[in-house]
Deep mutational scan, measured.
Amino acid sequence: MATGGRRGAAAAPLLVAVAALLLGAAGHLYPGEVCPGMDIRNNLTRLHELENCSVIEGHLQILLMFKTRPEDFRDLSFPKLIMITDYLLLFRVYGLESLKDLFPNLTVIRGSRLFFNYALVIFEMVHLKELGLYNLMNITRGSVRIEKNNELCYLATIDWSRILDSVEDNYIVLNKDDNEECGDICPGTAKGKTNCPATVINGQFVERCWTHSHCQKVCPTICKSHGCTAEGLCCHSECLGNCSQPDDPTKCVACRNFYLDGRCVETCPPPYYHFQDWRCVNFSFCQDLHHKCKNSRRQGCHQYVIHNNKCIPECPSGYTMNSSNLLCTPCLGPCPKVCHLLEGEKTIDSVTSAQELRGCTVINGSLIINIRGGNNLAAELEANLGLIEEISGYLKIRRSYALVSLSFFRKLRLIRGETLEIGNYSFYALDNQNLRQLWDWSKHNLTITQGKLFFHYNPKLCLSEIHKMEEVSGTKGRQERNDIALKTNGDQASCENELLKFSYIRTSFDKI
């Protein structure tokens, strides 16, 4: 039985969820670079991206490699990797027998973001014989899940209580170790020597080791999670996991709180800001991140802002960003909400898709409305799209047979046209069989910064309504002859009103 693990408890099935942008060198404390989270699957090609990484700022997932063999891993080693800020997950990587050479110096898994409450997941690794993470000293947050690894031993010899604050939620089941077939031998045991430290858990006094050649490092209890030197002297209180010299914040392997210019500090002093819960960055760093993602459509890219001495992905609820200094300031009234469309555009074809934009005031991208039916549609669209004030790209209304009016965009005031449909149009209306009105132009103002209007096959939309939009939106004169079809717009509506004058002759039985 794995020490510190839980057996036999019912657990939810383990679901495996399925960018080499360097964020800056980590400095003297770390020998390499800070790398983003990685999802490495199918083959070993991307694994080489770990070569210079000291910190993975995010998670590391290595999974679904069915053609790899043990010899493929023999020359692979990433000794610079010290810390993973989120979680480490391995799933069905064939041929991998140990992690001792792959990650010989991995010391800390912070667990800032977890995989279903777990910071370390080893699942269905069919050839893994031992973990071998002999320098792993601290899992700051989260638990361990090690399950269905039929060859995995050296679990009962690990004292997880020396690595985690609590072992109650560890789930370590259905491994070879369960069948008591392992016969784990710690260093020196074969020669009758006791080389590794022994600890007591559940009444068992057991030597602690990761492999037959690597003991588990056990520091004096007084050192807590700070770690200790090879001689057993406690590291500085700002260290986490390990250090090369005692009581020196510049000799830590990793930091308990924050890293700044080669030393570990309790908090980031001005003019620095907390970033990702582990390091200090200056304003320029946060500003660069903001600008890199301002026009990016890459998933996970955030326009970072500053709030409460932190550089964070977005302002919290009730705050909006001051564009001059990136500071989050309290909103006066309802907060603006910028919604970034991942692929640059979004099609609204149902109430469900409209709900995804609920509360958005600025759309960074283009909207395509293609709704053919739905219950209580006008009210639903207004509830979900009615706060949109600005669209950076274009607005396209296409084959939306259920629409009679666009009044559900009740606050839309600006279409920038930074991206144009077919390279020309910022407003595009095609084949809307029941569209009769755009907006009530006596109450609604709309500016279209650039781009043209396109109207074709809107049989109940009168040309007068379209011409009014040209005047109000500032697009009059931009359109070419064929942009607004004269014969297919309003051709099934009563669009022309003329005053009919009647004269009559009164007659009676005795007068003409």
Rank of each mutant, 00 (worst) to 15 (best):
L29P: 07
L29I: 01
P31Y: 13
G32W: 05
G32R: 14
E33I: 09
E33Q: 10
P36M: 09
G37S: 07
G37P: 06
M38Q: 14
I40M: 10
I40V: 15
N43K: 09
N43D: 05
L44W: 10
L44P: 09
T45A: 05
T45L: 13
T45C: 05
H48K: 07
H48C: 03
H48W: 06
L50A: 06
N52R: 08
N52L: 05
N52W: 03
C53T: 00
C53I: 02
I56R: 11
E57V: 09
L60A: 01
L63T: 08
M65C: 02
M65K: 02
K67G: 03
K67S: 05
T68Y: 15
T68S: 10
R69Q: 12
R69M: 06
E71H: 15
D72L: 03
F73K: 04
F73G: 08
D75A: 04
D75Q: 10
S77F: 15
L81D: 00
L81T: 05
I84S: 00
I84A: 00
L89H: 04
L89N: 01
L90R: 00
L90G: 00
F91G: 15
F91H: 06
R92T: 04
Y94Q: 15
Y94P: 14
G95T: 01
E97D: 04
E97Q: 14
S98A: 07
L99H: 01
L99C: 04
K100V: 08
K100G: 10
D101K: 06
L102Y: 01
P104C: 01
L106N: 02
T107M: 06
V108M: 12
F115W: 13
F116T: 07
F116N: 15
N117K: 06
Y118L: 03
Y118H: 09
L120R: 01
L120Y: 01
V121C: 10
F123S: 15
F123N: 07
E124I: 00
V126I: 06
K129E: 14
L131N: 02
G132D: 03
Y134H: 01
Y134T: 02
N135R: 07
N135C: 05
N135L: 02
L136D: 01
M137L: 08
S143F: 07
V144F: 02
V144T: 04
R145T: 03
E147R: 01
E147P: 01
E147V: 12
K148P: 01
K148S: 15
N149P: 01
N150S: 10
E151A: 13
E151G: 13
Y154L: 05
A156M: 09
W160M: 11
S161Y: 11
S161I: 05
I163E: 01
I163R: 03
I163N: 01
L164V: 15
S166V: 12
S166M: 15
S166G: 07
V167D: 03
E168V: 10
D169I: 08
D169H: 14
N170V: 10
N170L: 08
Y171H: 10
V173L: 15
L174I: 13
N175V: 02
K176R: 06
K176D: 14
D177V: 05
G183W: 05
D184M: 14
I185P: 13
I185R: 05
P187F: 11
G188Q: 10
T189G: 14
A190D: 13
A190L: 10
N195M: 10
N195C: 08
A198P: 11
A198S: 08
G203P: 06
G203F: 07
G203W: 05
Q204R: 08
F205A: 05
C209P: 03
W210S: 08
W210V: 05
T211Y: 06
T211N: 11
H214F: 14
C215Q: 02
C215W: 13
Q216M: 15
V218H: 11
C219T: 02
P220L: 06
C223P: 02
C223L: 02
K224C: 05
S225G: 07
S225T: 10
T229P: 07
G232D: 15
G232F: 03
C234H: 01
C234L: 01
C235S: 00
H236N: 07
H236S: 12
C239M: 00
L240D: 08
G241I: 02
C243A: 00
Q245G: 11
Q245E: 14
Q245A: 08
T250W: 05
T250Y: 04
T250Q: 03
R256P: 02
N257R: 11
Y259V: 06
L260R: 00
L260S: 03
D261G: 12
G262I: 02
R263V: 07
R263F: 13
V265Q: 02
P269G: 12
P270R: 07
P271Q: 09
F275S: 03
R279P: 00
R279F: 13
C280E: 00
F283G: 04
S284F: 02
F285D: 05
C286A: 11
C286T: 13
D288E: 11
L289M: 15
L289Y: 13
H290A: 08
H290M: 12
C293A: 04
K294V: 03
N295Q: 08
N295S: 10
Q299I: 09
G300W: 06
H302N: 08
Y304Q: 03
V305S: 11
V305A: 11
H307P: 01
K310I: 08
C311S: 03
I312M: 10
I312R: 13
P313K: 07
E314G: 05
E314K: 11
P316Y: 03
G318A: 04
T320S: 05
M321W: 14
S324N: 09
S324M: 11
T329S: 10
T329R: 12
P330D: 14
P330M: 05
C331L: 04
L332N: 14
C335N: 08
C335L: 04
C335F: 05
P336G: 04
